[in-house]
Amino acid sequence: MSDAGNEKETTMSSLQDRTPFGAVPARMAPTLPNAMVAAALAQLLDEADRALPHNADAVRGLLARASAMLRRPAAPAAKRRTGRLAPWQESRVIAHIEANLQEPIRVEHLAALVRLSASYFARAFKASFGDTPHEYLLRLRVQHAQLQLLHSDVPLAQIALDCGMCDQAHLSRVFRRATGTSPSAWRRHHSRPD
């Protein structure tokens, strides 16, 4: 690989290391259809704009995520939909997950929302998003917890409940597995001195 290629990888790696969400492994970065990429990029840029005056680290993280989405190679159109959820199914499932993040969400219920069997849905979901439904849900819950830790002084026990975790210990286990640190240590590290 050329030096320019190595430099690009190093730059992306260093940007991801500075994100408030930590580095996101490539396998956890879902491949999305163009319309969803555009919507996700617009949302990331809006969040970055709102966070700019308050938290430069959050802005760097959001911009790194947007940059990674733009650099992800697109799958050929003919192969992209094979074995995946249809765009309307993806939208419906994601909207339901985001609206009910604090509630228990079962694969059977998600499958019923898009009129599929649970086993086929689980395979199609993984093909569409790169994660199993459970992994995807946990990742969203950790990101939601990170946002609350970053922007509020809410106790960890309440954040755990708001994120759909059973209790603070459950949040701590999942959070540590995803980020390599405990929620309280992550909050201390990312809080700005006043």
Rank of each mutant, 00 (worst) to 15 (best):
M1E: 14
M1P: 09
A4Q: 14
G5F: 12
N6M: 11
E7A: 15
T10K: 10
M12W: 08
L15Y: 12
L15D: 08
Q16I: 06
T19L: 02
V24S: 08
P25W: 04
R27L: 04
M28C: 03
A29L: 13
A29T: 14
A38E: 13
A38D: 12
A39P: 00
A39S: 12
A39K: 09
A40H: 08
L41N: 11
A42R: 11
Q43E: 09
L44S: 05
E47M: 15
D49A: 13
R50W: 06
L52V: 04
H54P: 00
A56H: 07
A58K: 15
L63Y: 05
R65H: 09
A66N: 06
A68M: 12
M69D: 00
M69Y: 03
M69F: 06
L70D: 00
L70W: 02
R71K: 10
R72E: 13
A75R: 15
P76V: 06
A78M: 14
T82N: 10
R84K: 12
L85C: 02
L85T: 02
A86P: 00
A86E: 15
E90G: 05
S91K: 12
R92L: 10
R92E: 12
R92H: 09
V93I: 10
V93R: 02
I94F: 05
A95D: 07
H96K: 11
I97W: 09
I97N: 05
E98Q: 13
A99E: 11
N100G: 09
N100Q: 07
E103W: 08
P104M: 02
H109A: 05
A111D: 03
A112I: 01
A112Y: 02
V114M: 06
S117W: 00
S119E: 08
S119Q: 12
F121W: 06
A122E: 05
R123C: 00
A124H: 13
F125D: 01
F129P: 01
D131N: 13
T132H: 01
P133N: 06
P133F: 03
E135V: 04
L137D: 03
L138S: 10
L138E: 14
L138W: 01
L138V: 14
L140Y: 04
Q143N: 13
Q143L: 10
H144L: 04
A145I: 09
Q146F: 02
L149S: 06
H151G: 10
S152I: 06
D153T: 15
D153A: 12
V154T: 15
A157H: 13
A157E: 06
M165C: 09
L171P: 09
R173D: 10
V174N: 04
V174Q: 11
F175P: 08
F175E: 13
R177N: 07
R177Q: 14
S184M: 13
S184E: 15
H189T: 11
S191N: 08
